[in-house]
Structure formats: structure tokens, C-alpha cells
Design a protein around this nucleic acid. Structure first.
Lengths: 345, 345
DNA sequence: TTGTAAGCGTTATCAG
DNA sequence: CTGATAACGCTTACAA
């Protein structure tokens, strides 16, 4: 098989303990011995076995990431932020995706037992109760963008409610009274929060909500196409369309173009997330900026803090935290607002 | 700490060996004993420690993925395909990104030693020689979309050359003689191959290449904006722009819109990769379809084949393979071609 | 059918 | 400063 610390020890004429000490410089070693060890290790292309290391040190320097999906620019941004923060802390990412129910999350997190020092779980479509039941208590965990669970687990999320409300207000201020909403899946926590924000803003403005002005999608471009089509078929079609995420807004824009409807002149369009491509769309998409990569990075940082604070023997020793990241309105041409403006919410 | 197999054994009144046998059903156990063990394991929420398991079995059921970057829809698609294929085979993904030089790849792959059964390395901007030197010979490895290395390592790639040539021909057939090219980074293998395809197609058509019709980018949207701007500032500006990837094509489209230039009437635009959003752009983007997720999946499958064939004691026992995936031209409105056509190349 | 014990490759403790 | 050796948690002969 592969070359082990024993091989290095033998060839260098020392004990494995000494090799370990040299390579980690965890204890003083005669420079003569040390350099001999180093050169042998070099020649043999030795690098320590991670599994053995994890087992012995009770630390894997890896964190597990459990995701619902891996579709679209949102997730690559999220992973990018996570990976950066992890690498900064000397950690790697063990990724597992397409877990949409509690059982899937359970299976994924079990499979990671012993291989990760902490868990990042994003499961917007799993009920908090069910979720909490399957989360391992052996490693620190941070929940991402879900419903805040009842119990003692840390969570970080985006201000979905506030962002959606701010966007809705923006459209209202632009003079729109009939604002269509392309919602996300009914059981998706983020989708629900954004929808509540939309409704609340309408209510505050004393605008009665037309039920035919809300259609349900699933966060994909195709759903945006279908959603826009449905909204415009309403008895009194909306003059603005707010999609619960950017992918659906992209679909809406595509539909409107095909239908020969001008944006924003005939219908204004807005999205949520502000994925990188949003600024380059035609027209550029007004959106709610989330700072996706920053969200991922923050989640990792919070988790790593808990990990390093967690003494292996005493168990999780850090109070669960709940963090909500603010959003910012980014106004571009698709809404017909004062392009370039950014409004913190 | 966490509950181990010993705890289960003790509470069930059996030996750890029996617990192991029951949980993996690796040997016959009296049903009475078995169910007792299972129920104790259940109650204790036991799941085996992965590191210990890997160490003992010499198999981690994880594969390492070393990437240059994690930016844009290309990489989320790629990871999606990989994750799907991995999950199908009972494997997880250990991801490490932003490795642009041989040293980075070296560090990443060393860090994965003992934690993964195989390695997927994408390093288009690392010279094959340098790359091969740092690749571990202890685990099977598959190279993704790089230059084919000299030696004995498997590789899988997309037909960048053929795809780019086909796209260039498409634009020529549409009547364009001045075709601008927004290239990728000079040291990026994929970018080079695509550029060679573009040049070859021009040559075949006896079109003399205007040096000012090639500008260099870096695969980002911003580079596409700058590239389009530079091309249109040429003494005799091109009537078509072919960007070496879709992200840059997106940037080009954005620039053209801002400049009030009609696509495809004034200038035709084409990209490469056919990322999912391409079909929803305005206008829809003509591109070279790569099947990004399929590429990732295929890479994992090929690697897994090598992994399962690799006997732990005899070392890699599978002949290195080289696979090139075909591309397909997807013609949409941005090139002004017969929309909906798909041409295999 | 079950238990004992020898690894797997490191790190860390304890003598020397 | 260095070497034995006991963990780490699991699997798997080998015995019984």
C-alpha cells in the first residue's frame, strides 16, 4: 500500500514518535535528526493518513455541509463562501446534497459521523421539530436559512421577511398597486418568510391582495416562466412582478420578452438573492441583495467558533446562537426605479 | 464523548464483534441477539465513527474533488453531477477549491490522504508535467478538463476544440466574416483549446484572422463586458462575437445592450458551456452545449470504477483512460441562426 | 453463533 | 531529546 509513518521511521532510523514530533513540530527534536527525518519523508512522498489522524486526535478538520440542492448560481456562491472561510480556518468541506426530508438529513449526517468536526445543515423544507430530532448532538451544528428551531441549536439566516417587505414597498412607491408574486414551494421556510414579507407590505400600504396575484413556483427558471404567464392571465393582470428568487425572476423576464411585453415600461420585475448574474441581465434585475457568499462564510465562521470551543470531553460548550443577516435593496432597470440605488432594510 | 460500539455492546450484553456483525450484517447472528443489539443501537442513537471505519477497512467511501474555483453556474452544475453520481455509488464528496497552481493542488491532495478513495482534479491552468508530479500515486485519480498529461493518469474532458470550431463555422455560415473572439486566460488549457478551434475554423474557411478581433478575458462576466467593448473599438469591428464561455457571453450581451447595439441584428453573440441560464437570457444565448452535470457525473463514474477495481494491496490495477465528451451546438436567438436547431459536432 | 484479539496509522503519555 | 506503548473506534480473522 501507501507509505506510512513507520516506513519513514525505519528509513530515518528513528521511532515513529520522533517522526510525528518532527512533522508536526510538537516537541523539540535535535536538528540533525529532524532534517534527516524531513528528507526521508520528502523522498518517500509521505503524507499522514487523515483517517488515522482524525481517530487519534479526535479532530478531522473537516466540516459537513448538508444541502437540499445544488442547483443554480445561489448554491455555487454559497459553497464558495463556505469554502473560503473553511480554508481560512484550515478546514475542508464534506458536501452532501439533495436532502429534502428529515430522513435524508439524518442519513447524511450519520454518514458524516467521525469524519467532521461540525455540521452545517440547510433544510428549508424540513419541519424544525423533525429536523431537530435527527441532528446529532455529538458535534456542533449550525442551521442555515431554515425556520428557527425551538431548541438549543444555532442558526443563521437571511432577513427574508424584511427583504421581501422592502422590495414590495419599493414597487408600491413606484406607483404599482397590482403587484404579482411568484412564490416558492409551499413547504419551504424561506419561501414562506418572503411571502409573508410581501403580504405584510401590501397590508401596510392598505392594498388589498388579489389572490390571483400570487402563484406558486419552485425557485427554478421554468417556474418563473410559468408564473409570469399565469399572472398575466389574471382578470386584472399585475403591473409589477416580484419573484421570490432570482432564478424565477430570470424566467419571468424571459417570458415577458417572448410575449413582447416591455420591462419595466409595461411590467416591472424584481427578484430576490441578487445572484451575480442579476446585474448582467437584460434588463438588469432589481433584487434583494443577500450576500450569499458572505452568508456561507459567516455560517462556517460561527460553526468553527463552536468547534474550537468544544472540548472533546465536555461536549458542546457554547451557547446556541441565532443570527439574522440584513438584506439590501439593489435597484436596477428591471423595476424602473432610480437605478444604482441601494437601500438597506 | 460520543457513543461508541463499545457502549452498544455493553448495554446489549454482547461483544463489539457481534454488534459490528449485526449492524453490517456481515455474518449470521441469532435473531434474538440481533434485534436486541439493534434496539440498543437505536436507543443510543449510535452511528459508527467514519474515521475508525475508514482506517479499519481501508476505504472511506469518499472521493476528493480539487477545483480551481467555485464561481458561476458552471461549477454548481459540475458539482451537482458529481454529487449525484457519487451518491448513487454510496460515496461522498470532499471538496476543496481555488487551487490554481501545482503547489495548491499538492497541498489539497495531501490533506485528503487517507480520507478519500480517489481524487478528481480539475486544474486547467496547471502545466501537465507539474501536475503529474504532485498527484498521489496511492489513490486512483481522474483529471478533468485539463491538458492530457503525458503519463499514466486517467483524464476526461470536453471536446473544446471541436465545439469551438463548430460554433465558429456556424457563425461563418450565417454570413459573418469578421468574428471577434473573447478568449480565456492565456494559461488555461480549456481556453487554449477553444481558441485553437476558433482559429482552425477561420483558417478552413480561408478567413484571415484580424489580431484585433481576439481579446483576452478570464471567464467572468466583467471580462465579457470589457472584451465586447474592446472588440467594438477595433478599426473594423466584428459583426459577431464568440465568447469562450457563457459567463463572458453574458457580459458581452450586457455591454451591447448598454451600447444600444441590437443582438443579433447588429452583432451576433455566442458562448460556450450552455449553462442552464443561457436559454433564459435576453436574447437567448447560442452556445456550445457541454452537458456540465453529465461531465461531472461521468468523471465520478470513471473514478469509482477505478476505485472498486483497485485492490488495496496491489495498488491501482486499472489502465489509465482518456475520454473526450462530444459537444453540441445549441442555436438560439443571439446568433440569429435557425433557433431551436441542435447540431452535434 | 459468539468472543478474543490483532490490526488499521496516527498522536500522546510516560519513562528513560 | 528519544523510544515504547497505550489509546482512538472499528472490522475481521481465528478460536471456541
Amino acid at each position: 500500500m501507501s507509505v506510512t509513518i513507520k516506513d519513514v521511521a525505519r528509513l530515518a532510523g528513528v521511532s515513529v514518535a520522533t517522526v510525528s514530533r518532527v512533522l508536526n513540530d510538537s516537541a523539540p527534536v535535535l536538528e540533525a535528526t529532524a532534517s534527516r527525518v524531513r528528507s526521508v519523508a520528502e523522498q518517500l512522498h509521505f503524507s499522514p493518513n487523515g483517517a488515522a489522524r482524525s481517530l487519534s486526535m479526535q479532530r478531522s478538520h473537516a466540516i459537513g455541509v448538508v444541502l437540499p440542492d445544488l442547483y443554480g448560481e445561489f448554491f455555487s456562491e454559497l459553497l464558495r463562501g463556505m469554502d473560503q472561510a473553511a480554508q481560512r480556518g484550515g478546514y475542508s468541506l464534506l458536501v452532501s446534497s439533495s436532502h429534502h426530508d428529515a430522513r435524508g438529513v439524518d442519513a447524511a449526517s450519520r454518514a458524516m459521523r467521525g469524519r467532521v468536526d461540525g455540521l452545517l445543515v440547510m433544510a428549508p423544507d424540513v419541519a424544525p421539530g423533525a429536523l431537530e430530532k435527527v441532528l446529532p448532538r455529538s458535534v456542533p451544528t449550525v442551521l442555515l436559512n431554515g425556520r428557527a428551531p425551538s431548541g438549543a441549536v444555532s442558526a443563521i439566516a437571511v432577513d427574508n421577511y424584511g427583504g421581501a417587505a422592502a422590495m414590495t414597498r419599493h414597487l408600491i412607491e413606484l406607483g404599482h398597486a397590482r403587484i404579482g408574486f411568484i412564490a416558492g414551494a409551499a413547504n419551504n421556510a424561506e419561501a414562506q418568510q418572503r411571502e409573508r414579507g410581501y403580504r405584510a407590505a401590501l397590508k401596510s400600504a392598505r392594498i388589498e391582495r388579489d389572490p390571483s396575484h400570487t402563484v406558486r413556483g419552485d425557485f427554478t427558471e421554468a417556474a418563473g416562466v410559468a408564473g409570469a404567464r399565469a399572472l398575466l392571465a389574471a382578470a386584472s393582470p399585475p403591473t409589477a412582478i416580484f419573484a421570490a428568487n432570482d432564478a424565477m425572476a430570470v424566467g419571468a423576464l424571459a417570458f415577458l420578452r417572448d410575449a413582447g411585453i416591455q420591462v419595466p415600461t409595461d411590467v416591472a420585475v424584481a427578484g430576490f438573492d441578487d445572484i451575480p448574474v442579476a446585474a448582467f441581465l437584460n434588463p438588469p434585475l432589481t433584487s434583494v441583495r443577500v450576500g450569499i457568499a458572505a452568508l456561507g462564510a459567516r455560517a462556517v465562521e460561527q460553526l468553527l467558533e463552536a468547534v474550537t470551543r468544544t472540548n472533546a470531553t465536555t461536549g458542546p460548550a457554547v451557547a446556541p446562537r441565532r443570527e439574522v443577516l440584513p438584506t439590501e435593496l439593489v435597484i436596477r432597470a428591471s423595476s424602473g426605479g432610480p437605478a444604482g440605488a441601494r437601500i438597506k432594510s
